[in-house]
Structures are given as structure tokens and as C-alpha cells.
Design a protein around this nucleic acid. Sequence first.
DNA 1: CGTTTTCTTGAGGACGTTCAACCTATGTGG
DNA 2: CCACATAGGTTGAACGTCCTCAAGAAAACG
Lengths: 213, 213
Amino acid sequence: MFIHREFHSSQAGAAGHPRFFEGIRLSATARHREKELIYAQGDEAGDIYIVEFGCVRVSRITLEGRRLVTGFYFAGEVFGFETGTERQCYAEALEYSGTRTFHLEGRDLANPRIAEMLFDHLESIHQHLLILGTQNAIERVAAFLVGIADRRGVDGPRARLPMSRCDIADHLGLTLETVSRAMHRLQALKLIRLVGAREIVLLDRDALIDLGA
Amino acid sequence: MFIHREFHSSQAGAAGHPRFFEGIRLSATARHREKELIYAQGDEAGDIYIVEFGCVRVSRITLEGRRLVTGFYFAGEVFGFETGTERQCYAEALEYSGTRTFHLEGRDLANPRIAEMLFDHLESIHQHLLILGTQNAIERVAAFLVGIADRRGVDGPRARLPMSRCDIADHLGLTLETVSRAMHRLQALKLIRLVGAREIVLLDRDALIDLGA
DNA sequence: CGTTTTCTTGAGGACGTTCAACCTATGTGG
DNA sequence: CCACATAGGTTGAACGTCCTCAAGAAAACG
């Protein structure tokens, strides 16, 4: 997704306030502290969010109280698409983050950039579905780490993980213990290197993709 | 989803040929034999399908050769939404079926009925994700059976299953043996009754929902 | 009626979960 | 500055669920 670049190239307004993005009026940047709730389950849907900096986690709780983390969103990425009038998911800042919003009207879907965002979102859900439906633990973790590393700009093969093991587990349909073990197994296989708990280096990206693709 | 009723209420053309659906020109009904391929992975995307009768299975194969059945579609339901220009999924008739198509242009998304279809699709994927991400075997099967029964019109609690155990398994991320065992466990629990292998009666819908919701 | 496909059922094993202990990092207050 | 508390992460052992492999039963088909 290349919304990233285009977003940042939007013309600068005074002191970073309401600008336009592809003909859509964006709100001013909202800043969120670590762990701050951005929107809650039950809130009115309709606003779409663009991450300016930081990282956002979007989750959903089932009736049995189990959590599914539907996605993590980094700078330049878009979240907040929901189907009904009420949000089924809730969003939280994983670290100090900035977001901008715009209101999505039905007619806006005719805007090709908006449609592209929606289709990108659809595609990422589909990818997630494929992982949950067909892969085992180590494949899931490999796919996840490659996905994260690919999205963190041009840091090279190094990536910071702003989310906890539990977040990853709830994203991949595993337990946090299994995620921890899988990461250490990937390290033993020399496919990644762990730098503390919250940073990784991809040592053999191709092998990781073979595992997780 | 109520597209069903509206679709059938569209004005009758001569001998059932090109009619309109919410201002969209529909193709004539295409008829597909059992097991017939409707579209293939790699085909050009852009056409959206409406099932007129029968049942369609949409699947996707991973690089490792594993199959995920992304959905089953019955009369009145819509399938064929894809993100890129090339299809990632392929669709097959599970039984003798009829479909109509229309071509989706970007501007059509401004049509609220089209947008509604897309959002319904998004919602069903999300539901699927929730199942694969949080539920165990018996819960998945319970949720699946309720979902099927709810969509098969007003047959009451009885539903025919046009798909095989293997199809169900590949839809739920299980094996066909596990699906078979789960269904017989649900029968032992008196939540369903199996009428042969391809028909079920829901005996305790609420308990099934409790399990699978 | 035999052939083929699909479904069921059993036994054994692998993978992931559960439970528990321990470790590490970070932050707080004395 | 250190003692302690807290949250997150790692590791081990035991268990359970689901998968694999295999055989047999039941439908579907020609």
C-alpha cells in the first residue's frame, strides 16, 4: 500500500492542522498516550483513521470473552473500517501515537483512493484468514514477523515489536507461550535473531516466507 | 441480508433475460453443472455474482497447496468480490446452480446497494476470522451449522448440506475426521439430529449459538 | 450389481495448551 | 541508591485436543 507516501506529501497547512488528503478533509492530528483507547466497541462507526506515527492495535472480544486482535497499524496505515453503524472492534494506542480521521460517507467510496484503502483492508483480512485457516504455530509466527518487518519502512531487516507476546498470540490464534517458543525456535533455526524481547532481526527472509507464505 | 427479496422483485424481462438490479444491468442467468468451475484463480476480477439457485463454493489455495474454503453461497447471496485485478480465489458450483453477474466499476461503489453488498461481505469475512481465531472444533462446527441453517430460507430448523465434510473442514481449519466427530458429538448432546450425512435438524438452536457464538 | 466416493470410527501420536515456576526489565517509594 | 512491586517474558512438565493413518461402513453412480 502506497497511501503512505501520498499521505505525507499532502500540502502542509499552518502548524499541521486540517489538511486535505485526496480531496478528503482530514481532522487535526489527535495524539494518544500509550494504552489509550482510541475508540470503543459500541461507538458510532463512520470515521476512518490514518496513523501518523506510533502503532495502534484493533481488537474484538467474543461473547465468551476471548479476544481476537484483528490488526496492528503503523504510520501511514488506515484502520477503522466497520460494517454497521456501531463499532464491533475497539482500538488502542500501543505506544504514543498520532492519528487523523475523516468521515466516510457512502458517496466517498466512489473516490478511487478511498476504494483502494477499503480493498487494501479487505486484502489484509483475507491474508489473516488464510493464516488462521491453514498454518501451524511456527508458520503463523514467521508470517507475522515478515509482515511486520515489511511494513516498518526501510529499517532494513531489523524491526521493533511494539506489541506484547499476548497481543501476537491473540492475533494468531495461539497462546503467548506458544508464540514465545516459536520465536525461539526460529532463532535456533537461524532465521531470526532476537534483540531483547521487543526487537528482531530477520536473518533469512526467504526461508521465513517459505515457512509462512 | 435482504438483497434476496429485492433481487427477485426486479421487474421481469422477456424469458428471464437481462434485467436490472438497483440500476445495475445483470447478465442473463448462467447455469452451472455440479462441480463446474465458475471462475478460476488468475482470471480477471471485476465481475460480481449473484446466486439465483443452487450453491457455490469459493476457495483459495495457498503456496503450500493447502486449501481454504472462504465461503459457501446460496440463492440470493453475492460472491466474487476480490481486491486486485486478478482473482486469488476460484468458485465452483456445488450442485446445479444458476448465477447472474454484473460488472463492478469503481463509481458503482457509490450505489448504496452495492456498498451494502460489499459491507455484508466484509462482515461475513470478519465473522469467519473470529471463528478461526478463537474457537475450538465443536464450537466451529456449531457456529457453521447455525449459519447454514439461518441462511437456507424458511425451511425451519432443517437444513441440507450441499458441501462435503472435507469442504466444511477446509472452511473451518479442521480435518474432515474432526468435523465428522464434532457433528456426532453435537448429536450425542442432542443439539442436532443427523438425517443421513447431508442433512441436519437443529434441535437446540440456542445451545448451539451459546457454543459457537 | 459392482465400483467409486464419501463418511464414520478407532488407535496412536504430535502439536499446542495449561499450569506453574522463574527470570528480566521497569517503575516506585523509602 | 537500593528494596520492593509489577508487568512481561521464558522455560519446563503434564495434559488434552486435534491430526494422522488405517480400516470399515454407507451412499452415490453407472
